[in-house]
């Protein structure tokens, strides 16, 4: 096990370096001159521009810039944005919000997805199953932004049940609707995964054995079927955590949530390269670690899986 974790951590190093280099390249090398844009219409004083280029290492070759940034990263120094704010402060403001949002979404998709999926899987082909199968297909097919502003309009504006936008007050009440919208597509996937998995396990030999032993249906379903069916679902949920945080751009835009997605989107538009690079890097790290965690959870849930 320790060997396996060690090997996986070693494998992460090239992935991390490659991904950050790619991001750095996309943001810095492709984006043109960010300092020139700072000056606006009138342009910057050449001396000031030179000073700024020096400060942000923009006069260095691309690879040197990247290595300098990497060096800062090792000491948790994410640099300063072009507007002069430390990137660490920008991230400290945005990440807690998005983490809350992602957990609301994860909670929603896990609880409802597994519950509905379990019932559907047990009653495959019945009315409940067919209804939610269609619901899940529609949720997958309708883009999340359409679901987003339709819900915002119906639930938030017309019915007034939940606040339509989040803005400054981030709490569970304001994040509830955005969380559901963000988790809606994954809810459909969790539902379908659980359903298929449960239906498949219901005909498995170990379930027949458990029933033959005289266990109650309740115990067979919860202990034998559900636990085994959850293995692929847990994999999906873990991998989805990273996806939810990175994919929150659209949802955060619609509901005006001051999280990672919104900050990132504005940073991209304003060519705030230091902010973009560092934020995306953190997102990638979350994604990579979530995947490792999922693989380890796999072994914990399924004794048949052993890592050597």
């Amino acid at each position: 096990m320790a060997w396996y974790i060690g090997r996986r951590l070693l494998q992460m190093i090239p992935v991390f370096l490659g991904a950050t280099l790619l991001i750095y390249f996309m943001v810095f090398a492709l984006a043109g001159d960010p300092i020139a844009a700072l000056g606006g219409e009138r342009g910057l004083n050449p001396a000031v521009a030179a000073q700024l280029r020096e400060h942000y290492h923009l006069n260095q070759p691309f690879l040197v810039q990247y290595l300098l940034w990497l060096k800062g990263l090792l000491t948790f120094d994410f640099g300063t944005s072009f507007s002069g704010r430390p990137v660490r402060d920008v991230m400290a403001g945005a990440f807690p919000v998005t983490i809350q949002l992602a957990f609301v979404a994860l909670f929603f998709e896990a609880v409802f997805g597994i519950a509905v999926g379990l019932v559907s899987g047990l009653r495959k082909g019945k009315l409940f199953d067919s209804t939610f199968l269609i619901v899940s297909l529609v949720v997958i097919a309708v883009p999340v932004f359409v679901i987003g502003f339709t819900m915002q309009f119906l639930v938030g504006v017309k019915l007034g049940w939940l606040p339509p936008t989040v803005g400054g007050n981030v709490n569970i009440r304001t994040l509830l609707m955005p969380g559901i919208v963000l988790g809606s597509v994954s809810f459909a996937y969790v539902l379908r995964l659980t359903r298929t998995s449960v239906a498949e396990n219901m005909t498995a030999d170990f379930v027949r054995t458990a029933t033959a032993k005289g266990l109650t249906r309740r115990r067979v379903v919860t202990v034998h079927v559900l636990r085994n069916s959850l293995i692929p679902v847990v994999t999906f949920l873990g991998a989805d955590l990273g996806g939810l945080m990175g994919g929150a751009i659209v949802t955060e835009g619609i509901f005006n949530i001051p999280g990672v997605g919104n900050t990132l989107y504005h940073a991209i538009q304003q060519s705030e390269a230091p902010t973009v690079v560092s934020m995306v890097t953190v997102l990638v790290m979350v994604y990579i670690f979530a995947n490792l965690l999922v693989d380890l959870l796999y072994a914990a849930l399924d004794p048949r899986i052993r890592y050597a």
Binding site: A19, L22, G246, G247, L264, L283, V284, Y287
Partner: peptide, 8 residues
């Protein structure tokens, strides 16, 4: 390439 979110 897998680690970088598509839309991002």
């Amino acid at each position: 390439f897998f680690a970088i979110p598509l839309v991002l």
